[in-house]
Design a protein around this nucleic acid. Structure first.
Lengths: 351, 351
DNA sequence: CTGTTAGCGCGTTCAC
DNA sequence: GTGAACGCGCTAACAG
């Protein structure tokens, strides 16, 4: 905003009218004669007039801006989510203010305060790693807020949300392995206490129960909550061996990055996928289809999730009553899973 | 902004002072006695007062907001870039307004106009696929702007920029292949007319010249400019066969996604990498290290590029004179490249 | 149809 | 030290 831009007053002076006439003309008010309106519009164009959103906001009490909080922008998962959000926001004439929390509680609170300070019209929060802590912190504010993939105690009452059905996803993954003849099936989680981790594990258990299979605690590998933030890739690498030791033939991984980590560990250990071991991921990030072998995974359509959340926010703006959305994931079969017959043999051969 | 928030007037009334006293107290003006200042601050806290950034902006003529334009948010390349931008922006008390152009010229212009409308303090543009078209469009505005990886005619004069040294990158890639004994080296480009594509090709040629090698036009594969936007992956897939037919043993690819495409094509054709063919990418996106084989590539540190660009913008805000930045890429050796001896044999065996 | 006036919430002279 | 008054750029209520 270096040089002062021209205002409606400037063009009013030049047109020999009052500033309110200009304001009306520019906004196509029916109160203005078409002659002056055209003349004013011409002048505005000629003078390179750009209306001042700040002044409008002060008057309208609306900023046409939504705040979006994600864990990390560099994470492809959130990248696609934001892509969906931005797309429908732009179509609605809204802008996106982006903040990253890096999974840090304080930074997330700071981001929310910042959004209130800037008077955003609505807030979107996507940070599955933080959980339900800040339910209270959010309550004191009155800005329409939609939570994405976040579990809160009274989620359905106080907050609006769109989330993926993680339990269903877990079922789908395990059922797929069961269909392939696997019996010794493991879960490789992240242990961050998130709803996603817990519910995917629950889905895993449901599917096994339904199949009438006894479960072995050794089949579930979840790292200790660590002070150090450890990447999903490293979690997969680190936890794989103990599942192998437990004699499993198929693993449902918390997400694709964990699965990739497990895959890398397999390569180091000389375990070939899917011959010796079947791997199922979650998320269906782009990477999943490019690695070798392409990853069988439970797909959440992240762009669509962003679109849904933003659409819900728009409906809230209009005062509509909205229902929370639970999106259904679906299985994408690729080449990291195979029938167990081959796997059994290979594992035995391996010894 | 549903319910009207409380203003300094509200707390002024309650404190029995004027609103300007409150304003001063909150901003730690030395003109205010410490007693009233503390009392006012206490009141503000108690009443849950949140200053109104909009009103402040109108007064200060600053929004503490920067506009960022990228091609696509979902693209990991831009994701990391924005990550870097957002990080230093937040530390400086600035917020990021994010717009995606999807490589569309009109949308990009619209984004810029939108940013002016909203009176951002500065603009960051990263969209290597658009090129120099809109130099003029940008000129009429006076907002500090930093171009990221964009080539403009008079770049150094009118605009500020941070970019990667694509020519150097091309050299590094080809020199690596030469070191491995390759002589028949190809370039697989995208032909979008971007500076990046042209300069990487130029680097390729420089390295070959310097090695005293004669060049073969068949060794450069660049798709026809197509009406249909075709993905980088597909470009790699589609163009690989003709380079193979030309008898090359090593390929420098425009970027990692193109290289991944080429790699996938290799798998389909039964060409094993790096035994039969060496592949070098560009960008070093996360994917590059996870695929099989892990990709040797020219690395640009995208997060750092974002940080540099944002830092430059901050310096422009302070009225400092800044020099354009040309970041040096570096080679990351992984497993998609190998000495030519093996490759030669394999190729012959292949026939 | 158009001009005048009054805020939106805040920072900043200029007086006292 | 503090309050009154003005303006940032714009929309809207009220006159005419």
């Amino acid at each position: 905003m270096s040089k002062r831009k021209i205002s409606i007053e400037d063009i009013a002076r030049k047109a020999g009218v009052s500033h309110s006439t200009v304001s009306r003309a520019l906004r196509d008010s029916p109160l203005i004669s078409s002659k002056v309106r055209e003349e004013i519009k011409r002048l505005a164009q000629e003078m390179n007039y750009v209306p001042n959103a700040i002044a409008q906001s002060l008057q309208n009490q609306r900023t046409y801006t939504v705040g979006v909080i994600v864990t990390s922008i560099a994470d492809p998962f959130f990248g696609e989510l934001v892509e969906g959000i931005e797309q429908v926001a732009r179509l609605a004439g809204l802008n996106v203010l982006l903040n990253a929390s890096h999974g840090d509680f304080d930074q997330e609170i700071a981001a929310i305060e910042n959004f209130h300070y800037r008077r955003v019209d609505g807030i979107l929060v996507a940070d599955s790693r933080i959980g339900k802590h800040y339910t209270q912190q959010l309550t004191q504010f009155t800005v329409p807020t939609v939570l994405i993939n976040i579990d809160t105690e009274d989620q359905s009452k106080t907050f609006h949300s769109v989330a993926i059905d993680d339990r269903l996803g877990g079922c789908l993954a395990v059922e797929h392995l069961l269909d392939l003849g696997h019996i010794r099936i493991g879960y490789l989680g992240v242990g961050d206490g998130s709803k996603a981790d817990q519910q995917r594990l629950e889905g895993y258990r449901m599917a096994l129960n339904q199949a009438g299979l006894t479960q072995n605690t050794n089949w579930v590998a979840i790292p200790q909550r660590d002070e150090q933030a450890i990447s999903d890739i490293d979690i997969g690498k680190k936890m794989l061996p103990q599942l192998i030791a437990a004699g499993i033939t198929g693993i449902f991984c918390y997400n694709d990055m964990v699965a990739v980590g497990a895959l890398l560990a397999c390569k180091e250990l000389g375990i070939s996928v899917p011959e010796n071991l079947s791997l199922v991921g979650f998320d269906n990030i782009a990477l999943a289809s490019y690695i070798t072998p392409p990853l069988t995974t439970v797909s959440q359509r992240m762009v669509e999730m962003g679109e849904s959340a933003m659409t819900m926010l728009l409906e809230l703006f209009e005062g509509k009553a909205v229902d929370n959305i639970l999106l259904s994931p679906f299985l994408v079969k690729r080449e990291s899973t195979a029938t167990v017959s081959r796997a059994k043999k290979s594992v035995i051969t391996l010894r």
